[in-house]
């Protein structure tokens, strides 16, 4: 694994996952664990959060792509992740366009100019 590099994981709706898997990022490892989660209407928030945390714990994942509307559901877990690896990227979905004001990275960057930082 070390020689091959790290994987890109996806948590998203069906079209997002299908697109990225078409691009060639998909993997089913020896334990039949995928590096993607197709979020459907009946997928619970707990399941999404657990999958996200399992991706964070895996050392073979370098980047996690997540639809922004799904990221909103588990915002606390995303905000709690401070390490640079794996990097978490919020991407738009078909129904929900990308909103920079909701992005955790940009909110952190924006927070630098608040009054609290000058104290």
């Amino acid at each position: 694994m070390a020689g091959r590099g790290k994987l890109i994981a996806v948590i998203g709706d069906e079209d997002t996952c299908t697109g990225f898997l078409l691009g060639g990022i998909g993997e089913l490892n020896k334990n039949r664990k995928p590096n993607f989660l197709v979020v459907e209407k009946d997928t619970s928030v707990t399941e999404i959060e657990e999958t996200f945390k399992s991706f964070l714990a895996r050392n073979d994942i370098g980047i996690i792509l997540i639809n922004q509307f799904i990221a909103e559901m588990i915002r606390h877990a995303i905000d709690a992740h401070m390490q640079s690896i794996p990097a978490v990227l919020e991407i738009p979905s078909k129904e929900h366009p990308y909103d920079a004001s909701k992005d955790s990275i940009l909110r952190r960057a924006k927070g630098m100019f608040s009054a609290e930082d000058f104290r």
Binding site: G5, K6, T18, G23, G24, E27, N35, G62, S84, I85
Partner: peptide
């Protein structure tokens, strides 16, 4: 064109190389 069509054996065709630079930055390269 749906998730039903995914293969039972999937292998990645793209990987990411992450290396840390001196300044503490991370460089990702697909």
């Amino acid at each position: 064109v749906s998730a039903l069509q995914y293969a039972s054996e999937i292998e990645p065709l793209i990987c990411v190389h992450a290396r840390s630079l001196d300044t503490g930055k991370m460089d990702f390269c697909a």
